[in-house]
């Protein structure tokens, strides 16, 4: 066990809650059941670490085994660190038939061709996610296992999620992903957050969606003038706002996004009697929404009337386009409509 292996082991053990430690070590599968029985998980972590290291040495485990444990930890805790979403575009005809073995072979080959020292570990999960761990070195240095990059790709979908990617390694990883998944290019999806699962659910629409009710829209269009029974009218209107809130942000449990950022490069739209309304220059600013569960907050905001229904396209674009970073620009000089641009 070298220094790097010790450091990685220490880092994982520190992050793991004591309760979860035995199950994670079992999932790792590098130590025998007896060895795991021997360990006392109630010990202080520094002591447990020493004992764990001696067990690892007993079994002749090495750096590559420890990186496997790190991967197990990340797969079990997909809500750590800041993930960025990417989208592969223009699939080739073969894209639909790429299987895991093919993908793995090609990915490793492409990456090793351009980066001399890179250590790659890949694992396919039951949900179809391919987890890739990359430790980078350069021409002269060995791969640095303390700063690995993680990428998660769902085969046969255009989505890739990446954690800890430096600008230096970006082009290499992009190219390897594009070539091995049989696509033509890859773009940033302008979606980022701590929760990989939430971002996946949002992009793959794996949450309870509500679609505009045809009947309701028709009824509204032919609605008779205001109802005399105010109470009923209020209930109907409340139900309608709730429905519209759910159409925009989903029903039930929604993907747990934390933030959404809008860069505003639009003209001033304040009160009409301000002289600034006439000027041509843009009124620049950045709006950041944050909440423990952004979509739930926004849904509540609309259904309680703190925001006007129907929901503005700016906010509904979060779910509709699966993004949480937008640049809002003026569509054309003089146009007043707001469209999420770029």
């Amino acid at each position: 066990m070298d220094e790097q292996a010790r450091a990685i082991l220490q880092r994982i053990l520190r992050k793991l809650p004591s309760k979860k430690t035995p199950s994670t070590l079992r999932a790792w599968g590098c130590l025998s059941a007896e060895q795991l029985e021997d360990l006392d998980y109630t010990q202080p972590k520094w002591l447990l670490l020493e004992n764990l290291i001696s067990k690892c040495e007993e079994s002749g485990l090495r750096l590559k085994d420890v990186t496997k444990l790190e991967m197990v930890y990340h797969i079990e805790n997909p809500n750590q660190g800041k993930w960025h979403a990417f989208k592969l575009t223009e699939p080739e005809d073969e894209a639909v038939s790429v299987d895991f073995t093919q993908f793995k072979e090609m990915f490793v080959a492409h990456l090793e061709e351009v980066v001399q020292h890179v250590s790659i570990r890949m694992k396919k999960q039951e949900d179809g996610a391919v987890w890739i761990r990359m430790a980078w070195g350069d021409n002269l240095t060995r791969p640095n296992h303390l700063k690995p990059t993680y990428a998660v790709h769902y085969l046969q979908t255009p989505y890739v999620f990446i954690l800890n990617l430096s600008a230096k390694h970006k082009p290499f990883l992009y190219q390897a992903l594009v070539l091995s998944s049989r696509h033509t290019s890859i773009n940033e999806a302008h979606l980022s957050g701590r929760s990989l699962t939430a971002m996946r659910d949002l992009l793959m629409k794996q949450y309870q969606q509500v679609f505009p009710n045809q009947e309701r829209t028709l009824k509204e269009r032919n609605a008779p003038p205001s109802h005399p029974n105010i109470e009923k009218e209020h209930a109907e209107s409340a139900e309608r706002t709730h429905q519209m809130a759910c159409e925009a942000f989903g029903d039930g449990t929604v993907p747990k996004l934390e933030t959404a950022v809008y860069k505003l490069e639009t003209r001033y739209r304040g009160s009409s009697n301000d002289t600034l309304s006439d000027r041509d220059e843009l009124f620049r600013g950045v709006v950041k929404f944050s909440s423990p569960n952004l979509l739930e907050s926004l849904r509540h905001c609309v259904s309680t009337g703190m925001a006007e229904a129907p929901v503005t396209p700016l906010l509904s674009s979060i779910t509709q386009k699966g993004r949480n970073y937008f640049v809002i620009a003026e569509k054309a000089p003089g146009a007043t409509s707001q469209t999420p641009a770029r």
Binding site: R279, F283, R284, G285, V287, K288, F289, N293, M306
Partner: peptide
């Protein structure tokens, strides 16, 4: 801070020159 559940924080950063012109 909006009294939604869970609570929603909105941070609006305005360009200083534009804020001053307003």
């Amino acid at each position: 801070t909006m009294p939604t559940q869970p609570s929603l924080d909105i941070m609006y950063t305005v360009n200083p020159q534009d804020a001053w012109e307003l």
